[in-house]
C-alpha cells in the first residue's frame, strides 16, 4: 500500500497499468467471440467502449447473437452488474468531498471490479484527478484488447491466452491477502465469503443463480456479520 504519495493523475495512470494488462487479455477474448459470432469489428469495439464490463458484455453478446429479447438483455445486464451498485456506494464514501456532481456522474462510468479494488487500497480520500487516471489506462486497455481480439483472431498462441485467464484473479488475491494477514476480521470476512461462494457454485439448484447475485449475497452476509461482530474504529475505516 502506497502512502504519502500524492494522488496525481499520473499516479492514477500508473496504478491503472496492471488493470490495463489484465483487461487486454479478457477483452481480447471478448473481441474474438464477437467476430467469431459474426459481428463486425466496430460493433465489438462499440460494446466495449460503452459498457466497460466483462461478465455483462459476454452475457449481452450471447443474447445479441442468439436473438434475445430486449427485456431479457436489460434484466440479465442488471442482475450481472448489480454488484457495481455496492461498489459505487462503498467507493463514493471515499471520494474527496470537493468532487463536483459532474465529475461524479462522469467518473461513475468507470467503476469496474478492478478499478474499485485498486481505488479502495489508497489511504485517505480519492480525488477526481487520481480517479480519472485510474480509469483511463484500463479503458484504453479494454478497447485495444477488444480491437486486437476482433481483428487478429488467434494472434496470441492459445497456451498464452489460457494462462493469462488467471491473471485477473491473481491480482484480486494480491489485494485481499496482505490486509487479511494484518487484520483478523478481514481474514474472517474473506473466509466466510469464499465458503458461501463455493457453496452456491457447487450445490445443485443454487448453482443456477447468476454470479452477479451470488457475489452480492456472499458480500452482504460476510460484511454484515463482520460489521456486527467487529465494528471498525473511526481511525481504521480508511484502511
Amino acid at each position: 500500500m502506497q502512502q504519502n504519495e500524492a494522488l496525481t493523475f499520473q499516479k492514477g495512470l500508473k496504478d491503472g497499468l496492471p488493470i490495463c494488462l489484465g483487461y487486454v487479455s479478457v477483452s481480447f477474448a471478448f473481441g474474438m467471440m464477437a467476430t467469431q459470432g459474426g459481428l463486425p469489428v466496430w460493433v465489438a469495439l462499440l460494446i466495449s467502449m460503452t459498457n466497460l464490463t466483462s461478465a455483462g458484455q459476454f452475457a449481452g453478446l450471447q443474447l445479441i447473437l442468439t436473438g434475445g429479447l430486449y427485456i431479457e438483455i436489460a434484466v440479465t445486464t442488471f442482475v450481472i452488474n448489480i454488484r457495481y451498485m455496492l461498489m459505487s456506494l462503498s467507493l463514493f464514501q471515499k471520494v474527496d468531498e470537493a468532487m463536483s456532481s459532474l465529475q461524479r456522474f462522469v467518473l461513475s462510468f468507470g467503476v469496474t471490479d478492478e478499478v474499485f479494488a485498486v481505488a479502495m487500497q489508497q489511504k485517505g480520500s480519492i480525488n477526481a484527478r487520481y480517479f480519472s487516471g485510474l480509469i483511463v489506462t484500463p479503458y484504453i486497455g479494454w478497447a485495444v484488447g477488444t480491437f486486437l481480439g476482433a481483428t487478429a483472431t488467434g494472434l496470441l498462441p492459445g497456451s498464452v491466452r489460457t494462462a493469462l485467464g488467471i491473471a485477473i484473479y491473481g491480482m484480486f488475491i494480491a489485494i485481499i491477502i496482505p490486509p487479511a494477514i494484518k487484520a483478523k476480521p478481514v481474514a474472517k470476512v474473506i473466509l466466510i465469503s469464499v465458503v458461501l461462494s463455493c457453496f452456491f457454485k457447487w450445490t445443485p439448484y443454487l448453482n443456477r443463480i447468476s454470479s452477479g447475485w451470488v457475489i452480492i449475497v456472499c458480500a452482504v452476509i460476510a460484511s454484515a456479520y463482520a460489521a456486527l461482530r467487529y465494528p471498525v474504529q473511526e481511525a481504521e475505516v480508511q484502511e
Partner: peptide
C-alpha cells in the same frame, strides 16, 4: 463498518 468490509468480501466471492 459494513462498507469497509465489502471490498474484501466482493473480491473473495469473485475469485
Amino acid at each position: 463498518s459494513f462498507l469497509a468490509y465489502v471490498p474484501y468480501a466482493v473480491l473473495a466471492a469473485m475469485t
